[in-house]
Amino acid sequence: MALSGKPVVVFLADDDADDRAMFEEVIHEVDPTIQLTCAEDGKILLTMLQSGKYPLPQLLFLDLNMPNKNGKECLEEIRNSDRLKDIPVIIYSTSSSPKDIDDAFEKGANLYVRKPSSFQELRFIARAVLAMEWSNYKPFVVRNTFVFSYKSV
């Protein structure tokens, strides 16, 4: 149980098993108290969120390119749901296409993180993102800080 505003329950939706494994590893390494729940695609994620069997996450990492229900669709449904709309959503995708970034911003994502090509970078990202103040999160994002850049951190 986190004493401060640090997230305790974190969700990850990603169809890539390697990425899920590495993500779990890095989260465990950065903060072992975090309860990480993984979903294998968008559809599973939403079912889990809507079932009520799981505590709602304080932070959700969302891949864009997933089978069954992609990340953008999930984001849209979450933002349109009274119960889920306040969950902070971090896009976690390989895409660096401006269009994807822009769409995500428009649909109400809070941060856009490109999947790194080294574990070192991943660790770095996890630390930085989890250190951010998410408990007092307000659905207001500034466009030029929307894309997370580990160089600037």
Partner: peptide, 18 residues
């Protein structure tokens, strides 16, 4: 191209680093 080609490349890189 954007995903299916990039993903394996990224994997190559990330595991090589690892």
């Amino acid at each position: 191209a954007s995903h299916d080609l990039k993903e394996p490349l990224r994997k190559i890189q990330i595991f090589a680093h690892r």
